[in-house]
């Protein structure tokens, strides 16, 4: 009975928040697939941290706390951060991981400087920063759900239109370049799509956990299939399920913040997929190994027995 109690509490706010989390999970799951396949899983982490100064500058310039303006600032800064990473890797001998960590931490640091400036001028409270780092799913409004739906929808449509090009880019960049595709432009475009997914998620799950929203559904989906289209679809489904289940679990008990619950749900999907997925999964693998060992034993046994029988 107790389990069904939360159903009676399916109030308006919860529906809005759940819908927002589901949409967010869909968008970030689908786009995260590309980041994971390109081994850039942590790009999301860097972009989400690098977005902080953008939010602060947007606030300093306009003085408004309208989500759309702050999201725009976050997107510009996150995009610049991603561009800085790409340039550092291209122009210096600094490797991808160092460039990522450098941009992530220093952009965030610059954001902190700006925040302390805002705080000193006294027209803002710390709440903005907390929301940025940890997210506050409970503050998602109908307006935000519409924003997530429209911007996320645009990102997904661009992904579908450029399906063939992006597929070629992530699996064989050199071949794509030799066919005359503008790979650098496609790279920047793909990064921009990721930026959109990330800044949309900042409000709900926050900067630290946003990277997992991109990575976890994609890694879970990867275990079930070798095909890109199925993987993107599954990742979107897993992302949506993580969003919905995380929100409902956190609303059914007090003291369970939504963002972390969504991440734990997504991580649980990964664990289950790694264990149970057919062909690739650990359990499947150990059963196959067991079978192989037995058939090898039987084969060896026959070999040993064969000549003996003849001699008898």
């Amino acid at each position: 009975m107790d389990n069904f109690l939360f159903l009676t509490r399916l109030d308006y706010t919860l529906i809005v928040v759940t819908l927002g989390a589901a949409l967010l999970g869909t968008v970030s799951g689908a786009l995260g697939t590309y980041a994971v396949l390109r081994r850039q899983s942590l790009l999301g982490d860097a972009i989400s941290h690098a977005a902080l100064p953008g939010i602060a500058i947007a606030f300093l310039l306009t003085g408004s706390k309208t989500p759309l303006i702050l999201v725009l600032g976050a997107a510009v800064a996150g995009w610049l951060g991603a561009l800085a990473i790409i340039s550092i890797v291209r122009l210096t001998r600094i490797k991808y991981d160092s460039a990522l960590a450098l941009v992530l931490s220093t952009f965030f640091g610059f954001g902190l400087v700006l925040y302390s400036l805002i705080q000193r001028s006294g027209n803002a409270n710390q709440a903005g920063l907390d929301t940025f780092i940890f997210g506050q799913a409970a503050t998602i409004l109908k307006r935000d759900v519409i924003t997530i739906g429209i911007l996320g929808g645009i990102a997904l449509i661009i992904m579908l239109i450029l399906w063939k090009e992006l597929k070629l880019l992530i699996f064989d960049e050199g071949f794509a370049a030799s066919l005359g595709f503008p790979t650098r432009l496609l790279d920047i475009l793909l990064t921009s799509l990721l930026v959109i997914a990330i800044v949309l998620g900042l409000q709900a799950v926050g900067a630290v956990l946003m990277s997992a929203m991109l990575v976890a559904p994609a890694v879970a989906a990867r275990q079930w299939t070798n095909r890109l289209n199925l993987m993107v679809f599954l990742a979107a489904v897993f992302g949506a399920f993580a969003g919905v289940s995380g929100t409902i679990i956190s609303s059914s008990t007090t003291g369970l913040p939504t963002g972390p619950m969504i991440i734990l749900c997504a991580t649980l999907f990964v664990g289950l997929s790694i264990a149970f997925a057919p062909n690739r999964g650990l359990i499947w693998d150990s059963i196959r190994q067991h079978k192989n060992r037995r058939s090898l034993k039987i084969a060896v046994g026959r070999l040993m027995e064969g000549p003996q029988q003849e001699s008898e």
Binding site: A212, L214, A216, I274, R280
Partner: peptide, 20 residues
């Protein structure tokens, strides 16, 4: 089943979530 970058990207947010 999981590449290094994805393994890092999975582990720390999960632990961080538990902390929060």
């Amino acid at each position: 089943l999981v590449k290094e970058d994805a393994a890092i990207g999975l582990t720390f947010p999960a632990l961080f979530s538990i902390g929060v």
